[in-house]
Simulated assay, not measured.
Amino acid sequence: MRNSSLALTLAVLLLSGAAGGAAPLPKGFVYLRDVDPSIAQDIRYAGAHNFLGRPADGYGAAECVLAQPAAAALKQAQDKLAAQNLLLIVWDCYRPARAVRDFVRWTENPDQQTKTEFFPHIDKTQLVPLGYIAARSKHSRGATVDVGLIPIGAPTGSTAKPVSCDRPKGERFDDGTLDFGSGYDCFDPIANLDNAEVGEPAADNRQRLSALMQSVGFKPYAMEWWHFELRDAPFASEFDFEILPR
């Protein structure tokens, strides 16, 4: 009986282990790493280097999760970059609706710890009215991405002290990208796609990125050079499942 009981216990443990780990994604969603592991990922809202200064609600893992057609389109974009010694880098993909609500709540509290880097010239209470933070985000539909371009082998994740995101490349946070004229998530007019104040190299890189993304089915967003939405997005409603490890 003892051996039978032990065998039963081991069987239960094995089955539990097989069923453990991350919950399955909703039908139609994939992990980008499973589609194209060569695309760089620096999922900012899963860590502390973002305008919140902490992980956002719903980001239980630093993983890019997307609707399958959006992930396939990013792979197409990366394939186009293969001969240019460049990689896509993604900063945000699917965003749980709870994170969107977290962002809005953050704009309503007086904390200013990340102002120097991310919103140096704008009152945080104005970030929703001005359109820098959405009360409802298309990221939550799984087909909107925040992306940039990095040279292959470029280091990312500098630990330099906070510097205004509108400072020139070499002074602001070094995210390893080509020069796009501002840092990622820079809540400032300089981040507008067609801002005339950025230098020619940055303006050219913005248009290069925009042309690439449009060629694989995404459309740009005028206020943010890094933000792209798949034109034929498969889902019209928002999701709120947590991002978990693969």
Rank of each mutant, 00 (worst) to 15 (best):
residue 169 K to E: 12
residue 42 D to G: 06
residue 245 P to S: 02
residue 17 G to I: 11
residue 218 F to S: 01
residue 157 G to V: 02
residue 207 Q to M: 12
residue 136 R to M: 05
residue 47 G to S: 03
residue 136 R to V: 09
residue 61 A to K: 03
residue 83 A to K: 15
residue 203 A to L: 05
residue 189 P to F: 05
residue 68 Q to T: 13
residue 210 S to M: 10
residue 147 V to I: 02
residue 211 A to W: 03
residue 52 L to I: 05
residue 230 L to Y: 07
residue 246 R to K: 04
residue 171 E to V: 12
residue 67 A to I: 01
residue 3 N to R: 07
residue 84 Q to E: 13
residue 36 D to Q: 07
residue 179 D to W: 03
residue 62 A to H: 02
residue 171 E to Y: 06
residue 123 D to R: 11
residue 13 L to V: 15
residue 176 G to N: 00
residue 107 T to Q: 01
residue 178 L to M: 09
residue 212 L to C: 13
residue 219 K to N: 06
residue 13 L to W: 12
residue 60 G to H: 01
residue 208 R to G: 10
residue 134 A to G: 02
residue 173 F to P: 02
residue 205 N to G: 00
residue 229 E to S: 08
residue 170 G to W: 07
residue 46 A to S: 04
residue 243 I to H: 06
residue 199 G to T: 09
residue 118 F to A: 04
residue 113 Q to E: 09
residue 44 R to C: 06
residue 125 T to E: 13
residue 56 A to N: 02
residue 20 G to K: 07
residue 192 N to F: 13
residue 183 G to P: 00
residue 176 G to P: 02
residue 231 R to E: 15
residue 213 M to R: 02
residue 99 A to G: 03
residue 166 D to E: 14
residue 136 R to N: 09
residue 152 I to E: 11
residue 102 D to N: 14
residue 78 Q to A: 10
residue 126 Q to K: 13
residue 68 Q to S: 14
residue 71 A to H: 05
residue 242 E to W: 10
residue 119 F to A: 08
residue 152 I to Q: 15
residue 95 R to F: 13
residue 57 D to I: 05
residue 149 L to W: 01
residue 216 V to S: 11
residue 81 L to V: 14
residue 98 R to C: 14
residue 179 D to A: 04
residue 21 G to P: 15
residue 235 F to N: 05
residue 27 K to C: 07
residue 144 T to I: 04
residue 79 D to R: 13
residue 168 P to G: 05
residue 225 W to Q: 13
residue 165 C to K: 06
residue 191 A to S: 15
residue 80 K to H: 11
residue 74 L to V: 05
residue 18 A to R: 14
residue 201 P to S: 11
residue 87 L to V: 06
residue 96 P to Y: 09
residue 213 M to P: 01
residue 60 G to C: 03
residue 126 Q to E: 12
residue 187 F to E: 11
residue 219 K to G: 11
residue 108 E to I: 04
residue 147 V to K: 00
residue 76 Q to M: 07
residue 61 A to F: 03
residue 9 T to N: 14
residue 105 R to C: 14
residue 199 G to A: 09
residue 175 D to Y: 02
residue 69 P to F: 02
residue 140 S to V: 07
residue 137 S to H: 05
residue 235 F to R: 01
residue 166 D to A: 12
residue 119 F to D: 09
residue 227 H to E: 06
residue 40 A to P: 04
residue 231 R to P: 11
residue 199 G to D: 14
residue 179 D to C: 03
residue 142 G to H: 04
residue 224 E to P: 07
residue 127 L to W: 06
residue 37 P to R: 08
residue 33 R to H: 12
residue 149 L to E: 02
residue 46 A to W: 00
residue 70 A to T: 01
residue 110 P to R: 08
residue 156 T to I: 01
residue 58 G to A: 08
residue 6 L to W: 07
residue 19 A to Q: 14
residue 126 Q to P: 07
residue 100 V to P: 01
residue 153 G to M: 04
residue 186 C to W: 00
residue 139 H to I: 02
residue 220 P to M: 03
residue 119 F to S: 07
residue 94 Y to T: 10
residue 133 I to M: 00
residue 13 L to E: 10
residue 183 G to D: 01
residue 222 A to F: 15
residue 68 Q to D: 13
residue 212 L to A: 12
residue 168 P to C: 06
residue 49 H to P: 00
residue 237 S to M: 10
residue 88 L to E: 00
residue 133 I to C: 02
